[in-house]
Amino acid sequence: MAAPTAQDDSPPSTTIMDKNGDVLFELGKDDATKSHLLVSSKVLSLASLVFTAMFTHGFREGENLSSSSPRLIPLPDDDPTALTLLCKILHFRTIDIPTTLEVAALANLAILCDKYDCADCVRPWSMLWLPRWLPHAGDDGFGKLLFITYALDLPDAFSEVTLALSKDCGSLPKADAQSTGYDILPLDLTDQLRERQRGIRLGLCRAIETAVSPWLQIACCDHRSVVGKYFQSLYSAGLWPPSEAIGKLKVADIKAKIASIAVGTSCGGTSCYGSCRGASGTDITAGTNIKATLVKAVDNVLLSVRGLCLDCVKTGDRAERAEECRIPHSTQRLRTA
Results as ranks from 00 to 15, higher is better:
164 A>T: 10
210 T>F: 08
212 V>Y: 00
166 S>R: 08
213 S>Y: 13
186 P>E: 07
200 I>E: 03
215 W>F: 12
198 R>E: 13
235 Y>S: 15
216 L>M: 10
205 C>I: 09
200 I>V: 14
217 Q>R: 15
222 D>W: 07
210 T>E: 15
194 R>C: 05
178 Q>F: 05
186 P>F: 04
236 S>D: 11
171 S>Y: 01
232 Q>M: 12
182 Y>M: 00
194 R>K: 15
183 D>A: 15
222 D>N: 13
189 L>S: 05
215 W>Y: 13
177 A>N: 07
169 C>L: 11
232 Q>N: 09
236 S>M: 12
197 Q>I: 01
227 V>E: 11
224 R>H: 12
200 I>A: 02
220 C>S: 14
208 I>V: 12
229 K>C: 11
165 L>R: 03
203 G>V: 02
188 D>H: 11
233 S>Y: 05
173 P>V: 08
207 A>H: 00
190 T>R: 03
174 K>R: 12
162 T>E: 03
184 I>P: 09
181 G>S: 08
235 Y>K: 15
222 D>H: 15
221 C>L: 14
217 Q>A: 12
232 Q>P: 03
212 V>S: 04
220 C>A: 06
208 I>D: 02
190 T>Q: 06
228 G>E: 04
161 V>E: 01
179 S>Y: 06
166 S>T: 14
174 K>W: 04
192 Q>G: 02
199 G>H: 03
169 C>V: 14
185 L>I: 08
167 K>A: 10
224 R>G: 15
190 T>W: 00
168 D>W: 00
208 I>L: 14
